[in-house]
Write a protein that binds this DNA or RNA. Structure first.
Lengths: 375, 375
DNA sequence: TTGTAGGCGTTATCAA
DNA sequence: TTGATAACGCCTACAA
């Protein structure tokens, strides 16, 4: 009496050539069941008999089978992938934002396709088109300055994939955005400068075409007004958030001898400090300084910078969570999430010295500091 | 006499509901040609008649058609996507590496799928499995310490997708790697410390399980030997490349009062400087310091750190180029590319003061510095 | 030059 | 519970 046995896939063909990854039908053949059954086992679907399930699982292990996610994406019309476009991942602001996004994405079974736009509208548009073509399920966008071509804008609406803006607003595209309260941050920063006795306060701003740069500028202006300080045009200069523009702005600004400067991001602050060195000035002796974005190294180097910290990781993670919510079909009303900045007082404003000198005004130090922390 | 006309896709159905993206067959129908012709037009293939080509192009524009890259990937068995696994994009070392990779990838029509491993073998392995399942064409890996499971290792061989290691070596997986000459960098760093008159030089090392940490340690040890300096066990402490380990190591190390310290990366240097503050010490007065990795901000803050800069962008771009070469079928012999580090002499070693004090040995300053730059 | 038809690896629908 | 079979959107021999 004989038993008919299906031959195990012996390597009788080319023994050492490139093996193709096993497919679901290989597993089906190997375990002698239908493709459907394999699929059911892989996805823990409808109750598969213990017997068959066991056989399938053995075959899967034996063949080292992993489902082809590309094929799955094609049929399910879902890639479990999120596109993320940032101006420049090498700008120290963004890594932590991206990390926040990746963490949140990961947690919900999504991956991140990363693109850099260099704040160029062209690169940004081609990145978007590529991501759409790759059928990402949604896009996280730190919009560059300027408008999308109407055709692109329309196409985005048509394919109906959700966008969430990060650190920017751009209502023409979507009203979903996760940003920081830039107005508030700038306002607090400049008020602190004023509390430290600074009267001629200058601003190195980001490109005013970018939404948050405008907000920071507004916060600066209003803080000046509230503190009865003049806004001298020579003391406001617009940069582009990059180092080089910071040194240019620094030279221009410092030549007018302000006694306080607020810089709208870290890269430009580095540039400013370069200019400061070149001009032989010192901080905080010659001027008080407060800048946006905080980093671990700012606590250990001199001058110890007073900064407005933004919750970068949270920015990324909340944006991602909102995006995934949209992907999952939530068509609720637009969400504009404003995260609170935090003033981190260190030494670059000379606040302590000023207080110690007894010149400071009626606002008591403790109350001032506390008001920051209550925000 | 009547002419039969194919109805243009009038929106007689739901006028404002979610539109599905147009597919190739929609275009074919719209322009009254076959799918093949559309495909040929889209891919600039075989000569399509001017007439038809025109009609197809019009239809494409009209329907806002973009090929579905998922479907294309499925049939071509190529995703034009590279997976990249780094320990942590928020570690300031990696953003520029990733940027280099993205630039090179972009240029050749590839995209980057980014994952963080936190140097955890578990996370790393699941990242690899996911990337394989998503059928990336190749993987850029900054390997975490430790061995892959044999099963995974074998599966990687089977599916036959190329890996290139970045800043690590791990011959069990592949011998293709792009790294920096860590031995040389550390050697130069410690020699510079010695030239600055430092005699009791300590080391804050990375995890010795990681290939480049070991190299840096070897460079440290040999430099000590060549300079006839003792290697005191108390002055060598192993960290994990993170800030916290730097402050712990700093406390431990500084309690033995070394007069020179070489730190194997920037994050641990930040930690060390924290410890320095806490202990009320000063650099370079109390000890000379040279650390790995350079950043734009290190030139503007005090103490101005002397560092060993690694060509981060190039590291990423060269690794990517090599990977794409492998993807394209180049099965040449393994490539181990070692990029040269560059000693950037600033002030944290007290070299200038030492030279000015006239205590320095026979090696003239200019020659010493020049020898660095010739590398 | 253009069209037809089969297949890439899944999931989903409907019978059995 | 299981199994055929039709999509998903594209590319590509092979035929016309």
């Amino acid at each position: 009496m004989f038993v008919l046995v299906r031959m195990a896939s012996s390597n009788k063909s080319a023994p050492k050539t490139t093996t193709k990854a096993a497919s679901i039908s290989d597993v089906a053949r190997e375990s002698g069941v239908s493709i459907f059954t394999v699929s059911a086992v892989v996805n823990n679907k409808s109750h598969v008999g213990k017997n068959l399930r066991q056989r399938v699982e053995n075959a899967i292990r034996k063949l080292n089978y992993r489902p082809n996610l590309i094929a799955r994406s094609l049929i399910k019309q879902k890639t479990q992938t999120i596109g993320m476009i940032v101006p420049d991942i090498a700008n120290p602001f963004f890594p932590m934002v991206v990390r926040g996004a990746e963490d949140a994405a990961q947690k919900q079974g999504y991956n991140l396709l990363l693109c850099n736009s260099d704040d160029s509208l062209d690169k940004e548009e081609s990145a978007v088109e590529l991501l759409l073509a790759k059928r990402v399920d949604g896009i996280l966008l730190t919009k560059a300055a300027g408008d999308f071509r109407p055709a692109l804008l329309q196409m985005i609406k048509e394919v109906n994939i959700p966008f969430v803006l990060v650190m920017r607003t751009y209502p023409k595209l979507t009203k979903d955005a996760v940003i920081s309260d830039d107005y508030q941050g700038a306002y607090e920063a400049v008020c602190h400068l004023a509390r430290a006795g600074r009267r001629r306060i200058g601003l190195i701003s980001g490109p005013l075409k970018i939404s948050n740069a405008k907000e920071r500028w507004r916060g600066f202006r209003d803080a000046l007004e509230v503190n009865n300080l003049p806004c001298e045009p020579d003391l406001v200069v617009e940069g582009d958030y990059r180092i080089e523009s910071g040194v240019r702005a620094g030279h221009s600004l410092l030549s007018h001898r302000p006694d306080g400067i607020y810089v709208a991001n870290h890269l430009m602050t580095i540039g400013l400090l370069k200019a400061v060195d070149e001009m032989g000035l010192r901080c905080p002796e010659d001027f008080g300084l407060v800048s946006f974005d905080d980093y671990p190294w700012l606590g250990v180097f001199r001058p110890r910078l007073t900064t407005v910290e933004l919750p970068k990781h949270q920015l990324g993670s909340e944006a991602t969570e909102l995006l995934i919510q949209r992907i999952s079909g939530d068509h609720g009303k637009p969400v504009l999430k404003k995260l609170l900045p935090e003033l981190r007082i260190r030494e670059s404003c000379g606040f302590a010295q000023f207080v110690a000198s007894g010149q400071h005004a009626d606002l008591p130090e403790s109350a001032a500091v506390r008001s920051m922390q209550n925000k």
